[in-house]
Amino acid sequence: MASQTTPLAPPTAGKASADDGRNGPRFDMGQILTYAVLLTGAVVAIVPFFYTVSVSLMNLTEATGGAWLPRAPQWGNYEQAWRDASFSLYFMNSVKITLITVIGELVFCTLAAYAFARMEFPGKAFLFALLLSTLMLPEAVTWVPNFITVSWLGRIGPIPWINNWPALTIPFMAGAFGIFLLRQFFQQIPNELWDSAQIDGAGHLRYLVRVMLPLSKAPVMTLALFAFIGSWNSLAWPILVTSTPDWRPISYGLLAFLDEAGAQFHLQMAGSIITIAPILIIYFFTQKQFIEGIATSGLKG
C-alpha cells in the first residue's frame, strides 16, 4: 500500500535522489528535528523521576545541598520511610481499596459502555452528553456533594459508608472516563457479530461477555491501569471520608514526612518511591495492552 511509505523513507524522485550515494550519508532535517523533540521530551519526563530515586538514596545533607547523586547510597532510607510512615497498615489498606475499586469499575463501566454503544433507549444521547459533562468538573467541586451522598447512603444502608470501604470505592466505580473509553472501542466492533450472536440465541449479556470482552482486552487493561493509578494515588477524598487509620491509603502515610515546620526530603522521596512502585510494576507488565488500548479506543491524538 502506498500509504505505508513512512515519512522517514528517503525520497525516491527529484534532485535529491540524484545525489544519493555520491555525497555520503544524508541527514533528513525533519528526522533530526523529530528525534530532538522526542529526546527532549524523554529527558523532561525522566529527569524528575531519576532525581526522586537519587534523593531517596541520599542523606539529609546531600538532599538539601543540591547534589545529583548520593556519595554512598543510603538504602536504610527505605526501611526508615516504611517504618515512620506506618506503610505496613496503609499499604494493605491501599491494596484492598484499589482492588475493590478496579473490579467494580471494570464491571460497571463495561456494562454502561455497552449500553451506550450497542443499545437503543430514550434519551441515550442526552444521558451520554450529561455523563461526559461530568468530566469537565474539577474533582474538588464534587467532594461535598459526594460526601453528602455517601453519608446519606450510610445512614439508610445496612453498613456505614463513612470510615469504611464503600465511601472509598463505590463513588469511583462508574467513572465517565472509563465508560467513554470502553464505549469508543465497543462502537468499532462490527454489527455483523451481534447479528450472528443473535442467530445463535445470545442476548446482550452473553454477547458482551463472550464476544465483545474477548475482543476488548486492550482497552479493558487500559481502564484497569487508569483505575488502579487513580485509586492508588488518591488522598484528598480518603482523608475526607476517614477519621482513623483503619482504611486510610498509602498516600496518607507520606504526610508523616511533612511535619509542621520541616520536611525530611530524603525520606519523603523514599516514601514516594515505595508508594509508586506498584504502579510502575503493573505498568511494566501491561504496557503493551495499555498502549494498544489508547491507540484503538480513539483516545490518541
Binding site: I162, N163, S243
Partner: peptide, 13 residues
C-alpha cells in the same frame, strides 16, 4: 472482598 475486609470502626464523630 468487602465482607472479608476488616470491620469498619464506627464513624469518628
Amino acid at each position: 472482598m468487602a465482607a472479608c475486609a476488616a470491620p469498619a470502626t464506627a464513624p469518628a464523630a
